[in-house]
């Protein structure tokens, strides 16, 4: 498995796209720093970029990568290797490459600017972690989609739809539900809706750091406890972990059964 991880990782970092990806983050964060000179403003802008972009890139990269290395996977399957180690090795190589390009792209400019000594350090660390977690979750989904659908076009369009769903449509439905049932207590509905969307989970975790003063204005008992205390942090982290474990488990099941 480690050997496959190594090969897949080397292949990824030799790819042109991963360079462009980290280059984009590098340029974006440097440009923001040069434009505003205020680290908290830069972090807010980066939050918006990360929440939209990392899931999109994660899911597209993952699907394309799987389809491109399909022959290689089939070749590996002819060897005396378990399917599980082949898929986890391939996947971990991809995820590691994505996370490293985020760390380089956002980490280097901000550290060079001096975020480590500033008051915003915890927000910065949270932001980087959430970017990595979102990449991991969405590239997992990408692998799952690509495994399920052999047709390249179908697989790609489904991954784009999945991103669209979690990034925009889901929040639209969420808001409609809230508006439609505003006469009822909505605390529990809100929490369960958050838990079911990894992008929302990451966003709320960042919000709890960024907009705490506004969050404290909310009066509902259950939700304000969720938002204000450490319990919320724990539940969110746990749900994000589930969002990693569940797709991983499904990949295992699907890959074992699949007839290549």
């Amino acid at each position: 498995m480690l050997k496959i991880l190594k090969y897949s990782f080397y292949e990824m970092i030799r790819s042109r796209w991963i360079f462009i990806y980290s280059g984009f983050y590098l340029i974006a964060s440097m440009a923001l720093l040069l434009l505003s000179n205020d680290i908290s403003k830069v972090l807010i802008s980066l939050t918006n970029i990360i929440i939209i972009l990392t899931p999109l890139i994660g899911i597209l990269f993952g699907t394309i990568y799987y389809y491109n290395s399909k022959e290689f996977i089939q070749l590996l399957m002819a060897q005396a290797l378990s399917r599980w180690s082949i898929f986890t090795g391939m996947y971990l190589g991809l995820a590691a490459a994505l996370c490293i390009s985020i760390l380089i792209g956002i980490g280097i400019p901000l550290i060079a600017y001096g975020v480590l000594g500033s008051a915003e350090l915890s927000l910065f660390l949270l932001l980087i972690t959430m970017a990595c977690v979102l990449s991991i979750v969405f590239s997992l989904m990408a692998f799952l989609i690509a495994l399920k659908f052999d047709d390249k076009v179908k697989g790609l369009s489904i991954s784009i739809f999945v991103w669209l769903f979690f990034a925009i449509i889901y929040d639209g439905i969420f808001l409609l539900l809230l508006l439609g049932f505003k006469e009822y207590p909505l605390d529990k509905l809100t929490i369960s809706m958050i838990v079911l969307n990894p992008i929302d989970l990451a966003r709320i975790l960042i919000l709890m750091k960024l907009d705490m003063s506004a969050m404290m204005g909310y009066t509902g008992a259950v939700l304000s406890k969720f938002l204000g205390k450490n319990i919320g942090m724990i539940i969110i982290s746990f749900s994000l972990l589930l969002w990693v474990i569940l797709p991983l488990w499904t990949i295992r099941r699907v890959s074992m059964k699949k007839d290549f």
Partner: peptide, 20 residues
């Protein structure tokens, strides 16, 4: 305006949908 109507929508702050 929405937040005034439904306070629970505080969790949708900074969401792409809300920005749109």
């Amino acid at each position: 305006y929405i937040h005034n109507q439904v306070p629970e929508s505080v969790v949708l702050m900074r969401s792409l949908f809300v920005d749109i």
